[in-house]
């Protein structure tokens, strides 16, 4: 299964004596989040530039004529987007830059705690080294070589990126249209309860069922029926196999019944 028990997961043990495993974000998530951030910064400057030129002004000419204070602010602003953007958003926004938030990943310390200011400063100041020689080559290489996909800055700061997954619990509780059918409940009653992995499999099928192609849905339903209806008398199995609705209703009650 995704997310738990993988070699890369960040394993923690809480004072409550429960072990946690945080899924680590890989090179793909990280690169896309970076590109989103860079595009965002680019967009901000481009929009600012266009708004400026829309107002009928020539930027370069105006820059020459700008007062010292405004020029100074422009220079420091450019510096800030290069250096401060990352640390400021990570510290103020729970380890996330806008790009990271979009991809649902966040920076965490090795002990699972949120990043502090100094950790964030280390990992972001080291971008200059991770970028070398071109296009984050050093960072990408260290991400490939380290178990938890950390770039050089992360190794120095003791941080890594963890994923926040969107997990749908509805499939356990949702009562689909199938429940309205009277057939199955009694049929499943005499069967032994299923192990959780099989329940999970059934629920996965049932929750995805509306999105499946009709013939694939039929095929899967009857294949599962064959397996999960073992032990039922032949007459009942034949009745269940007569229609898709009956088969799905049976599978649903099987999952709910344990």
């Amino acid at each position: 299964m995704r997310g738990t028990g993988l070699q890369t997961d960040l394993a923690l043990s809480t004072p409550e004596r429960v072990s946690l495993a945080l899924p680590v974000a890989g090179i793909g998530y990280r690169s896309i989040a970076y590109l989103v951030d860079v595009l965002l910064l680019l967009l901000v400057w481009t929009v600012a530039f266009f708004l400026y030129t829309l107002a009928g002004r020539d930027l370069l000419e105006d820059y020459e004529g700008m007062s010292g204070l405004w020029k100074a602010l422009a220079i420091i602003g450019a510096f800030a987007t290069q250096w401060l953007y990352w640390t400021a958003s990570e510290v103020l926004w729970n380890g996330q830059t806008p790009g990271k938030r979009l991809l649902r990943i966040r920076v965490a310390r090795e002990d699972g705690a949120p990043t502090g200011f100094f950790e964030s400063a280390v990992r972001n100041l080291c971008r200059v080294v991770d970028f070398l020689p071109v296009a984050y080559a050093t960072g990408l290489l260290t991400m490939l070589l380290t178990r938890q996909h950390r770039r050089l800055g992360d190794l120095l700061a003791g941080t890594l990126l963890v994923r926040e997954e969107k997990i749908d619990l509805d499939k356990y509780t949702r009562s689909g249209a199938v429940e309205a059918l009277p057939v199955p409940g009694a049929a499943a009653a005499g069967l032994p309860p299923l192990p959780p992995a099989e329940v999970e499999l059934l629920l996965a099928f049932l929750s995805r069922r509306p999105t499946l192609a009709p013939e694939a849905r039929r095929r899967l339903a009857f294949r599962m029926l064959e397996h999960f209806a073992q032990g039922l008398p032949d007459s009942e199995r034949a009745a269940l196999g007569s229609s898709l609705e009956a088969a799905e209703a049976f599978l649903h009650s099987r999952a709910q019944g344990g």
Binding site: T4, T14, L22, G112, E164, D168, L169, A197
Partner: peptide, 18 residues
């Protein structure tokens, strides 16, 4: 183990732990 419920609880507890 290995079910979505497990993964959900794992994530919930790590957020709370943090």
């Amino acid at each position: 183990p290995g079910t979505d419920a497990h993964r959900f609880l794992n994530q919930l507890c790590s957020t709370a732990y943090g």
